[in-house]
Write a protein that binds this DNA or RNA. Structure first.
Lengths: 230, 230
DNA sequence: AGATCTATATATAACAA
DNA sequence: TTTGTTATATATAGATC
């Protein structure tokens, strides 16, 4: 009968830990709802446990989405004030790279059309043009809504690192000669394209527990994949 | 001296409400941290109040991002089980539309190249080709990381509706004749392209309190914008 | 605005059925 | 495994500083 003052540390006894979890979770959710009612404020709680496959949340799913949608907007404001956190750092990298990417895209486009026109003018290689693999110029990443990931259980201990492995760009696959372009690719580009194994991983919508761009799971770089050499 | 049992209702007295909020928030956060420590589980809490401009969260920002990232993955699993909620409905629409989009994109590509070749062969209109506006073929949406939205305060009352207004596609702007393509556009396409006012809104990264695609604030349809007629 | 006090309400650890 | 009991720890309403 609670004769001991709780020691604030992980409860090693599995049974006791589970019992404590259930009791305290119940109490906590009650407190959460009380605070919301008494003070008329927005609040949400999300609890993961090994005992439930789904996280237990307050309030209901719709309500929590409302609160989260509100929360998701915050980092955009924060970073405009303090520009030191990792998120803003990555965002800056993306912004800069996007500019490069846009230029590159435009260049490639120009070269491709120039080349087509040149071949037409010289009257050679028309058959080659017909062979141009249009499938590879498409938008492969759009099928991302399929293939749900395996159910997440316990999250791994935090391992903060720059997710360079996640920043992937699709390679140009057409038969158009792009040797010049490849040579001109700046360092940031080649850095992010050196890991082909990420491609499949990304398309299957699965990923590990590594840090990712906050609040935008579903984009997982469709921006990149769609934008380059489309 | 707490002689009254609390009535579980909104505290009308402003002063009392604020006092209660402060005390209970402190207690709640303590409970949250205790539960996390004692049972070694992932948990987060987000509290909005009129008394703080920023939401008060547990754990710290990094930790909460980790938990939220985990949470964000959930809908993908859920929808594979129960296919009845709004999110999955929208996702299905997107998946289906993406397929159509891909075909359309491929068709346009084929027609454009065919036309270029035809013009080259007949020896006419080479000047027109040079005038092709390459800027409009680019990737405008990539500059989204600028222009933070206005600070959110209290969230508006929930107004659930299908965000068709948000689903926008960029119009083809090149001088290539696409009359045939326009005529062939299915109903879903024209439905989603009839509201030009949404364009600017989307590019400026601002939006109201309307429901949005869950857990993916930042994509706000870059998929669409980049993918169509690139 | 907070800090402290204190009586009471509430939560819960250990045990039992 | 859950439910109930109970002694004790903890939270907190209302007052005061």
């Amino acid at each position: 009968m609670t004769r001991k003052k709780v020691k604030l540390a992980f409860i090693t006894n599995d049974l006791a830990r589970k019992a404590t979890f259930k009791k305290r979770k119940k109490g906590l959710m009650k407190k959460v709802s009380e605070l919301s009612t008494l003070c008329g404020i927005d609040i949400c709680a999300i609890i993961y446990s090994p005992y439930e496959s789904q996280p237990e949340v307050w309030p209901d799913n719709r309500g929590i989405h409302r609160v989260l949608a509100q929360f998701k907007r915050m980092p955009e404001m924060e970073q405009s004030k303090k520009m030191v956190n990792q998120e803003s750092f990555i965002r800056q990298r993306i912004a800069k790279a996007s500019e490069q990417l846009k230029k590159q895209h435009k260049e490639n486009r120009e070269k491709e059309i120039t080349r087509i026109m040149y071949q037409c003018l010289t009257g050679e290689g028309l058959q080659n043009l017909m062979m141009l693999d249009l499938n590879d110029l498409g938008i492969d990443e759009l099928k991302n809504t399929t293939a749900p990931p395996p159910p997440p259980q316990q999250v791994a201990p935090p391992s903060p690192h720059i997710p360079t492995g996640n920043l992937y760009m699709q390679e140009q696959k057409s038969t158009v000669d792009l040797t010049m372009d490849v040579m001109q690719r700046p360092q940031w580009f080649t850095d992010w394209t050196n890991n082909p194994s990420d491609h499949q991983q990304m398309n299957s919508f699965g990923h590990g527990d590594e840090m990712m761009l906050p609040f935008c799971e579903n984009n997982h770089n469709t921006m990149w994949s769609n934008a380059i050499f489309p």
